[in-house]
């Protein structure tokens, strides 16, 4: 029982990280109908910026989070301008392939700038472990996990407020429903696209800063988690924001429990099995809307 609760907690923390990155995938898909395969690399960039800001410039944690998010967003916007924007009006396949290429470009840039060794990210937030007595045993709760869950919750709240209360947020929702109509109604598509990519990069970067101290930072850390988060986003219904969050949490919990009770070597297999079973039951994902074929 104690093990189960501990596993659930770390599963939720892991899932919250997946959710942050998955939100990036979904928010981009919602606006542009494109799968952004390089998304995981921005998680990696966030972690690297975080290490640099924290260890070299000795900035306080809150500034590290925000500055890393902003720097990552800046990289994202430059990449978007160079490699994605000219393709929006062309084939979907070309855009998809461009994002795949981008994944390797960013990895290589990180390798050139920061080298290929693994970097240690010193704990930035409280990393103690709290023990809570439970029945005749005690539950170990790492403060890091709580921090992760807390920060994710705050970001989700902020994102929800942004999308429902601000003009740009509402414009984003309008574009996701009907791009042409939104443009006709005077929505500035460019602003919407820019804010979409900033949100995606920012969330991924924060996830990177959060996770950096828990593991270590290296230029390859993004691709694996990127795939996981994409799985989560697809599972939840690609383009659906609540779906991305739910998919992320589900994936985190399934993985942790699967690793605990079945086999840790096949941890990644469970996420795939869950994905496949969901897609076969609901090809559009949990929260996705079934498309009616229009002729």
């Amino acid at each position: 029982m104690v093990m189960l609760i501990q596993a659930l907690l770390s599963g939720v923390a892991q899932g919250a990280i997946y959710a942050l990155i998955a939100l990036g995938y979904s928010v981009i898909y919602r606006t542009l109908n494109m799968g952004h395969f390089a998304q995981g690399e921005f998680y990696m960039l966030g972690a690297f910026f975080g290490v640099w800001l924290f260890t070299k410039l000795n900035l306080p944690p809150i500034i590290v989070f925000i500055a890393s998010g902003l720097l990552t967003s800046l990289v994202m916007l430059v990449m978007e301008r160079l490699a994605y924007r000219p393709l929006y009006t062309r084939s979907v396949m070309g855009l998809l392939i461009s994002t795949l290429g981008m994944q390797y470009v960013i990895q290589t840039i990180a390798k050139i700038v920061w080298g290929s060794d693994v970097k240690r990210f010193p704990p930035m937030l409280d990393d103690s472990t709290v023990y809570i007595p439970f029945q005749d045993n005690r539950i170990a709760i790492s403060m890091q996990s709580l921090w992760v869950i807390g920060v994710c919750a705050i970001l989700l709240l902020a994102l929800t407020l942004f999308l429902t209360k601000t003009k740009t947020g509402l414009a984003m929702s309008a574009v996701s429903m009907n791009r042409k109509a939104a443009a006709l109604m005077g929505v500035n598509i460019n602003t919407v696209i820019t804010s979409t990519f900033i949100i995606a990069a920012f969330l991924a970067a924060i996830a990177g800063v959060l996770m950096g101290p828990l593991y270590s930072v290296s230029f390859t850390m993004g691709s694996g988690i990127g795939t996981k988060a994409l799985t989560a986003a697809v599972m939840g219904g690609f383009g659906s924001l609540p779906g991305a969050v739910l998919g992320g949490l589900l994936l985190g919990v399934v993985e942790t429990l699967g690793a605990l009770y079945i086999s840790s070597a096949y941890k990644d297999l469970f996420s795939f099995i869950v994905l496949i079973s969901i897609l076969f039951l609901r090809p559009q994902g949990l929260f996705g809307q079934a498309k009616v074929t229009k002729v």
């Binding site: 070309g94 855009l95 461009s98 795949l100 290429g101 981008m102 390797y104 990895q107 390798k111």
Partner: peptide, 13 residues
């Protein structure tokens, strides 16, 4: 890998 990435993007563009 990065060179492949750049080549892919340039070709697509």
């Amino acid at each position: 890998d990065g060179i492949y990435g750049v080549v892919i993007i340039l070709v697509v563009l």
